[in-house]
Amino acid sequence: MDASSAQPVPAHRQAIDSQSPRPRHPCLDHQAREDHREVTDQQRPRDQEEGTPARNEFLVICLCAEWCGICREYRNGFQEVARQFPDAGFHWLDVETDADQLGDIDVENFPTLIIKRQQSVLFYGTMQPYPAHLKRTLRAFLEQSAEQSRQYAFSSATRCGWQADDDLQRLGPDHPGRIVA
């Protein structure tokens, strides 16, 4: 297209484009990351080497329903992944029988997974019900240092929202549904 046929830029678009820098989501600011770092560093076991995940530093929670055929089929694969990653905590929670523990956590489809490193929510959403997907995702998170995981947890507005969600933060290794490898 040549310059003579170019459409003029609307005034409202010019105003948006001229704003510099673009506003960032509030939780992406430095202070929010520092506040989160203080909490997670206090939770790290003192005898842990930097860069090495501590036992149960990672938590994987599967939100499913007994009435869901896909969930029933996925459960054995989820348990197998739990056996392959003995240093992570794995929990299976039924959205109906464990509803009191879940609070207002929104489950749109099954299986819905939550993957946390200490208090940082790294993944929250639906995942294809194939154990290989979960293994690949978990391996990628295990390769991150604690600092990389913290940065990842605050790298988008969506992930920042997960960090601010009281119900997601409340779910931890002390809840029922633990899968013993």
Rank of each mutant, 00 (worst) to 15 (best):
A65K: 14
G89Q: 12
S120T: 02
P173Y: 11
A3W: 10
E147H: 08
P131I: 02
R150I: 02
R150K: 11
Q19V: 06
P8S: 11
D47F: 11
D87F: 13
Q119W: 00
Q128V: 10
A146H: 06
V60P: 02
T52C: 09
P21R: 04
N76S: 06
L113M: 15
A11L: 10
E50Q: 13
R75Y: 01
V121R: 03
F78H: 05
S4E: 15
L28A: 04
C62L: 09
V95Q: 07
T158R: 08
C68P: 09
F141A: 03
Q43D: 14
Y152Q: 03
A88L: 02
G125Q: 05
E80L: 00
A157D: 15
D94G: 11
S149N: 08
G172Y: 12
A157M: 03
E34W: 07
L134W: 07
V39R: 02
R136I: 00
H36R: 12
K135F: 00
D100T: 11
W92H: 05
R139Q: 09
R44E: 04
Y74W: 05
V60F: 12
L28F: 10
R83W: 00
G77F: 02
R72K: 13
A6Y: 14
L122E: 04
T126F: 15
E147T: 02
P176H: 07
A181G: 15
D98R: 03
Y124A: 06
L168C: 10
R72H: 04
L93V: 01
R136E: 12
Q144A: 02
L63F: 14
G89P: 01
I70M: 07
Q43I: 14
Q43V: 00
S5Y: 11
R33V: 13
S120M: 13
C71S: 14
P173E: 08
F154D: 02
G103D: 07
G125R: 10
F58D: 05
A164Y: 01
S4V: 15
N56I: 00
S20V: 14
T137A: 15
F90L: 08
H25P: 05
G103F: 10
I70E: 13
D2P: 00
M127A: 15
G125M: 13
D98A: 06
R83S: 15
D41P: 00
Y152V: 00
Q151A: 15
T126N: 07
P176Y: 09
F123L: 15
C160A: 10
R55H: 11
Y130H: 09
Y152N: 06
A82I: 12
S4Y: 04
R22C: 01
L93H: 10
P131E: 12
Q118T: 10
E80H: 14
D87I: 09
P173K: 12
N56F: 10
R150P: 06
V121C: 09
D47R: 08
E96F: 12
Q31H: 12
V60R: 08
D166P: 00
Q144S: 06
